[in-house]
Design a protein around this nucleic acid. Sequence first.
DNA 1: AATCGGTTCAACCGCCCTCAT
DNA 2: GATGAGGGCGGTTGAACCGAT
Length: 257
Amino acid sequence: MGRAPCCDKANVKRGPWSPEEDATLKSYLETHRGTGGNWIALPQKAGLKRCGKSCRLRWLNYLRPDIKHGGFTEEEDNIICALYSQMGSRWSLIASQLPGRTDNDVKNYWNTKLKRKILAGKINISIRNKSIDAPTSIANILTSPLLYGPKAETESTITISDYSLTQSSGTLPTLSDIGYGPFINCTRQNLSPDQFQFSNFPGVMDMSEFGATSMNSSHIVSPSQECIRAFQIPLRLLWITRVSHCLVMVVLRVLGC
DNA sequence: AATCGGTTCAACCGCCCTCAT
DNA sequence: GATGAGGGCGGTTGAACCGAT
């Protein structure tokens, strides 16, 4: 036996919200600076014949002032694909990495458009210049407590630079710089070039095989820029492998495998 | 103009989790 | 520890919309 319903369904209005109801709810929440900690009691206080949960949903998904509707960018597509490949349908978590997007929006977008785009081969998770247009998203990913462990120490020092896959000089973008897929908890810390540090590489490789100096079980520090360059080819290969893996995972999930 | 099938997306349902008692 | 209320979330539904015929 399930739990009792949160409201008397016979006496609450259902279906689409009218502009008047929207205005009432918005006005109440703005006047009282929130729900007062209780959505269930809100409809009665606000004079709405709606279920408290319905009010909550309407506010969170539609009336909130910082909501964006539609117009998903390619960048957002990529982030959604990558996160979906990694964590599946954790829509609220995925939405939390996309400022102004709601879980419902992301879910609908995925189910109606993105899935098809992927199957049609129109989506390609790629790196390009300024691949991270939303540094805060990456910071959020890195510090997301549920999936990525404790708050990353590097949160305030994440630096975003211009990278491209064909970049021939300078340091290799780490997988976290790309910000996609299984690599997003591989952090590049804001250290000087000769202290380039990788941390928490997700289990697939022993960096020491590339000549790195092991600092401890979870950190590897290359002592020089030369060492960093030594990482470039294997890391690029790894990156390409991982991106391919990521895409395959997305497709498999889409196909329900 | 009418019908039909596909798409979109707001809203609902029901379960799980957390927290207060 | 048990219980119940409220919040949060993912899955699903169905009305509205749109383009094709």
